[in-house]
Simulated scan of single mutants.
Amino acid sequence: MAAAASATSPADKERFICIYPAYLNNKKTIAEGRRIPIDKAVENPTSTEIQDVCAAVGFNVLLEKNKMYPREWNRDVQYRGRVRIQLKQDDGNPCLPQFPTRKSVMLYAAETIPKLKSRTQKMGGSDQSLQQGEGGKKGKGKKKK
Rank of each mutant, 00 (worst) to 15 (best):
G92A: 05
R119W: 03
G135T: 02
A109P: 00
I17L: 13
E111L: 06
L116V: 04
G124L: 13
N26C: 08
K88P: 01
A56V: 11
K117G: 00
A56E: 10
L116W: 02
E72R: 02
G133Q: 08
G135V: 00
K27T: 06
Q121D: 04
T120Q: 02
E111A: 12
A31D: 14
I50A: 08
K122A: 07
A109E: 00
K122S: 10
V53N: 00
N66R: 15
S47M: 01
L63H: 11
I113C: 01
Y20H: 11
R102T: 08
A55W: 06
Y23V: 03
Q98R: 10
L24D: 03
M106L: 03
L63K: 08
P97G: 08
E72Q: 11
N66Y: 15
F99E: 00
K122C: 05
P100N: 09
T46S: 15
P45K: 11
I30Q: 12
P97T: 06
I38D: 08
R82C: 13
Q51V: 13
K138D: 00
I38E: 12
E49I: 03
E14I: 04
K28R: 15
G81K: 04
V105R: 00
Q98T: 10
Y79K: 15
G133Y: 03
L87H: 05
K67P: 00
E49F: 04
V42T: 06
F16P: 01
R119V: 02
K28A: 13
T101G: 07
K40N: 10
P114L: 00
V57K: 05
G81C: 14
P94R: 04
T101I: 08
A41G: 13
Y108D: 05
C95N: 08
E32H: 08
L96Y: 07
I19C: 09
V105L: 00
K122W: 02
